[in-house]
């Protein structure tokens, strides 16, 4: 194998998944009791891993600017909290977002490739990637063609991911598998292995636009793919569960899972992200609760 050459993965290296077993294991992480100092540091860690997201037809310049402010300064007056890792927007909003977060550590991620369905010719999808990068996106969240995957055209998936990676240039590529449409854990594992082999920097569960988004067991299957790739090649790949992670307790369960499956090396926003919109304020509320011992009214947390 030459350096820099991408190879289509060997399916025999892609283990089958036992549904009962993987769901049981995922449940075990939920039984971890995270308290006191451990809880506080986990909550603060989670804030720094947020990809604060808005992906609506109604997104406007004003809305995006306000959200960027929140990402940079989640808890006004408390610099120990945040900033978030990135903001995630549609390509048309990239320029606005890039300007709003300029000078901060917050990155701009853009969905592309005909998000969320991906149902378009590859040529136009790649053009969208180049446009978003040109507008200033640091990261691209692409979707794979689930239809083609389910048709068994696995090489097409490999090729489209590799082409997107090339189109990204210096930008990081996150590959959305849309696990809710792949439906089986075996498919999720195989799609993860293809995306990783084709050069994904991150693999991501969902668009948030179909009813079944990120779950703990699905994320576990993807983490195992990352783990096996690391064991084989020594190369790290990032993970981003997205959609449905709406409270702090669940976020901590994800972090416990990352810690116990991949190890503390992955516990930074370089390698792990949450794709979420409503999670932010619950994390902030729990941080305040840890500090003061009391829950505060939602009115004390900014809604942007």
């Amino acid at each position: 194998m030459k350096a820099g050459v991408l190879n289509f993965p060997d399916r025999r290296e892609s283990p089958t998944i036992d549904q009962v077993g993987v769901e049981e294991r995922a449940k075990r992480f939920c039984a971890r009791s995270i308290k006191k100092g451990t809880k506080m540091s986990a909550l603060k860690l989670a804030v720094t891993m947020l990809d604060v997201t808005t992906l609506e037809g109604a997104d406007s310049v004003g809305k995006v600017r306000q959200m960027c402010q929140k990402a940079m300064q989640p808890l006004p007056g408390d610099p120990s909290v945040g900033p978030a890792a990135a903001v995630c927007v549609y390509p048309r909003m990239v320029k606005t977002a890039a300007k709003a977060v300029e000078g901060s550590s917050v990155l701009v991620a853009s969905v592309a490739t005909q998000f969320p369905s991906g149902q378009m010719r590859l040529k136009e999808r790649l053009a969208e990637v180049r446009y978003a990068v040109g507008e200033g996106a640091d990261e691209i969240d692409m979707v794979i063609s689930r239809g083609q995957f389910l048709q068994g055209e696995y090489r097409a998936i490999f090729d489209e991911v590799a082409a997107c990676k090339e189109a990204c240039g210096g930008a990081h590529l996150k590959v959305i598998l849309e696990t809710g449409e792949l439906t089986t854990y075996d498919n999720v594992r195989w799609a993860s292995d293809i995306a990783i082999a084709a050069g994904a920097d991150f693999i991501k569960t969902s668009t948030g636009k179909v009813p079944i988004a990120a779950t703990l067991p699905v994320t576990l299957v993807m983490l195992q793919a990352i783990e096996d790739h690391y064991d084989r090649t020594g190369k790290m790949v990032g993970m981003k569960p997205a959609g449905g992670i709406s409270n702090a307790k669940l976020a901590i369960q994800y972090l416990v899972m990352v810690r116990e499956v991949l190890g503390e090396k992955w516990l930074t926003n370089k390698w792990f992200r949450f794709g979420a919109s409503s999670l932010t304020n619950d994390l902030l509320m729990q941080i305040r609760k840890q500090e003061t011992g009391r829950y505060q009214s939602g009115d004390y947390f900014t809604k942007d």
Binding site: K36, G37, T38, K39, A42, L45, E264, L267
Partner: peptide, 14 residues
């Protein structure tokens, strides 16, 4: 000991 989520052990939860 210190119970930082990343570096420490989990805080006791008896």
């Amino acid at each position: 000991g210190p119970h930082n989520f990343v570096f420490g052990n989990y805080a006791p939860a008896p």
